[in-house]
């Protein structure tokens, strides 16, 4: 895997947390170098800081995925700004975790991403629930090419809610009486909708949180 973060302290912290569990093939502290090195070394997973000078994580995502679409990105951030987080997900990141995440959870998330799954931290689940709020609540929704993309199924909503409550995939599976694989499928579906739905073209949805 590969670490992109503009703070050396964070990078070394991450390396220390990861230990031997994953093989770190390189790191970079700015957009240009990151793109160059990632394209050169083609890691399985890139751990990407959302906020970086020179275009942020989004710029790295776009430039790399244009060349090598197989690289999986996991966004890592302190940000509470829903727009920023949703933005990198829409640009192609497969998951989002906060920098609070424990070492073991991070390793777990990286492995999961490497397997092609999506990783939702509770906070991201909260953001997504907020974003996919019932349109009846006053959110203006741009017309979608595929109508189904603008809504979550009740099951997806359930899964997201449990994620936001702090449940792990395994616990969600147990709670809902489904297999872990099914949970993963739901989460991937949500991720897909998040990336394709027109809903988030509206920039300020999170700023104007719905006041019910």
């Amino acid at each position: 895997m590969f670490v992109v973060d503009d703070h050396a302290l964070v990078r070394s912290g991450i390396r220390a947390e990861l230990g031997d569990a994953v093989d770190v093939v390189g790191e970079a502290d700015e957009v240009g170098a990151a793109v160059e090195l990632i394209l050169e070394r083609v890691p399985d997973v890139v751990l990407l800081d959302v906020h970086m000078p020179g275009g942020g994580g989004r710029a790295v995502l776009e430039q790399v995925l244009r060349e090598v679409p197989t690289v999986a990105f996991l966004a890592l951030s302190m940000s509470d700004a829903a727009e920023d987080v949703i933005d990198v997900i829409r640009a192609g990141a497969r998951g989002y975790v906060t920098k609070h995440i424990s070492g073991t959870d991070l390793v777990d998330a990286i492995l999961r991403i490497a397997d092609g799954d999506a990783v939702f931290s509770p906070r991201l689940a909260g953001f997504v629930l907020d974003a996919f709020a019932d349109p009846a609540h006053g959110l203006i929704v741009a017309p979608s090419i595929e109508p189904g993309l603008d809504q979550l199924t009740p099951r997806e909503r359930q899964v997201l809610r449990l994620l936001a409550r702090g449940y792990a995939y395994k616990e969600i599976a147990k709670e809902l009486g489904i297999s872990t694989k099914t949970v993963e499928r739901h989460v991937s579906a949500v991720l897909h909708k998040l990336q394709l739905s027109n809903r988030y073209q509206l920039t300020s949805w999170a700023a104007e949180r719905r006041m019910l």
Binding site: H100, P122, R123, A125, G126, L129, D130, A133, H137, A164, R165, G166, R209, R210, M211, L212
Partner: peptide
Amino acid sequence: VGVELILVGDCP
């Protein structure tokens, strides 16, 4: 103790 607070929606 850390409190991870997730809030969806808001109201008065």
